[in-house]
Every structure is written in C-alpha cells, then in structure tokens.
Simulated assay, not measured.
Amino acid sequence: MRRSEFQRAVEAEFGRRAQALVNDLVLPGMGDRTAAQALDAGIPPREVWLALCVETDVPESRRHGVGRLEPRRS
C-alpha cells in the first residue's frame, strides 16, 4: 500500500472524520503515535492502515484491497 492508497482508503472508510482520525487518534499498535506520526516515522502505510482499522473496529472484510484505483480500461 502506498501513502496515496492509504489516504484514499481512510477517506473512503471514514468520510469527513478521516483527517481528524489520522491526526488525532492515538494508535496503541503504533507505539502510541497517531497515524500521521507513524507514517512520518517511516512505518509502512499498510501497517498504519491495519492499526487504524483495529482501533476503530473496521470489519476485516473492509480492510484489504482498499485504496487502490480501478485499473484503466483500454
């Protein structure tokens, strides 16, 4: 997962609350950092996404494969 995919996934899942969660919610699984701090510390976006999902009770069915753009059709 790339950082841009992380952003799309967070926005799709949390809507208007996305940026507040990324900037303010402390994630125990990320060493008590926010998602933004974890990303800035170099933690892979996929790991941050999964920690955010755990902390906010996102169902497992919505955790995988999100954030990717649809492939272009020729």
Rank of each mutant, 00 (worst) to 15 (best):
F14Y: 13
F14C: 07
F14G: 03
F14H: 15
G15F: 08
G15N: 11
G15I: 07
R16P: 06
R17G: 14
R17C: 14
A18I: 10
Q19V: 13
Q19S: 12
Q19Y: 12
Q19R: 15
Q19D: 15
A20P: 08
A20R: 11
L21K: 13
L21I: 15
L21H: 11
V22R: 07
V22G: 07
V22Y: 00
V22Q: 06
V22K: 02
N23A: 11
N23P: 01
N23V: 07
N23H: 07
N23R: 13
N23M: 12
D24M: 11
D24S: 15
D24T: 15
D24N: 12
L25Y: 14
L25E: 09
L25I: 14
V26T: 15
V26L: 10
V26G: 06
L27W: 04
L27T: 05
L27H: 02
L27G: 03
L27Q: 01
P28Y: 09
P28E: 11
P28M: 11
G29W: 11
G29H: 13
G29E: 14
G29P: 13
M30K: 09
M30C: 12
M30N: 06
G31A: 11
G31P: 08
R33E: 04
R33W: 08
R33P: 07
A35Q: 03
A35N: 02
A36R: 02
Q37C: 04
Q37N: 06
A38P: 06
L39E: 00
L39Y: 00
L39R: 02
D40Y: 00
D40F: 03
D40G: 03
D40V: 00
D40R: 01
A41I: 02
A41D: 03
A41K: 01
G42P: 05
G42L: 01
I43Q: 01
I43G: 02
I43C: 00
I43V: 15
P44A: 13
P44D: 08
P44C: 04
P45G: 03
P45W: 02
P45Y: 02
P45R: 03
P45F: 06
E47R: 11
E47T: 06
E47K: 09
E47D: 12
E47H: 09
V48S: 03
V48M: 01
V48N: 05
V48W: 01
W49G: 05
W49I: 09
W49E: 03
L50E: 10
A51K: 06
A51Y: 05
A51E: 13
A51V: 10
C53L: 10
C53N: 14
C53P: 07
C53T: 13
